[in-house]
Nucleic acid binder design. Structure first.
Lengths: 119, 119
DNA sequence: ATATTACTTAGAGTATAGTGTAAGTCAAGA
DNA sequence: TCTTGACTTACACTATACTCTAAGTAATAT
């Protein structure tokens, strides 16, 4: 699979695929013509990177996670640790947004009351 | 109240106070010497800006909200609309984070099982 | 053979939101 | 008066994550 196909399969632009590779998040081998070759395994990996990114993990941290992953199964405990640490962050975010939703609702009620008062 | 005091009162740097003013989020009058003068009213407003920003509202949208606010009470219905639209966004975020937390937990379970398998 | 398309690289440009510096002004205390 | 500290402006720099362009190569379709 070449970069165009991969971009479609993973739902990510070719630019980003090259950018992530340059940053060290993905490692891709080349064909005889020097073009990137991706396989099924890469799709899963790229989709997982996407999820990590969507959950607010910084590229530099994803890069570190990636480095461990390319080292093999022996690094699983370390990766698990990273995920567990990241889980704490995601949990905090979830709480944060729930709290802000509640604050915002209060503000909205205040506005509605004020507007009624004006009428 | 001058900028140094305000920075402390609002928990925000002097740089950001000037930056937000330049961006049009805050309007501040000057004393005879040309220095910024803030009052109690400004503290509340700046804290509210901070909250909007923390909930992911872009500075350009906060700027628009700000513009309406400086126009007076007549713009309250419009501001209410903005807040209600923003509420939708915050609600989505909250759902997103809850979903990612659940995905991440699945992944963590998978890792733990894999590591047990290796042992 | 030629045109088209997909690819390659390095590097420049964009968006968002700060963060800091340089050079100068102003006011109050020693 | 001199110094110190808080302030002023304009502008340059940083971080993060893209997004795109330029110039060139390779494979394929006509």
């Amino acid at each position: 699979m070449r970069i165009g196909e991969m971009a479609k399969a993973a739902g990510i632009s070719e630019y980003i695929l090259r950018y992530y590779e340059k940053k060290g998040l993905i490692r891709v081998r080349r064909d005889d013509a020097g073009r990137r070759c991706y396989d099924e395994n890469d799709i899963e990996w790229i989709k997982f990177i996407k999820r990590l990114k969507d959950t607010g993990m910084l590229l530099k941290d994803i890069k570190e996670y990636s480095r461990l992953r390319y080292e093999g199964n022996a690094t699983m405990p370390e990766r698990l640790k990273m995920l567990e640490k990241h889980r704490e962050y995601v949990l905090e975010q979830q709480k944060k947004w729930a709290e802000y939703l509640s604050n915002l609702d209060d503000k909205i009620v205040f506005y509605k009351d004020s507007i009624d008062g004006l009428a």
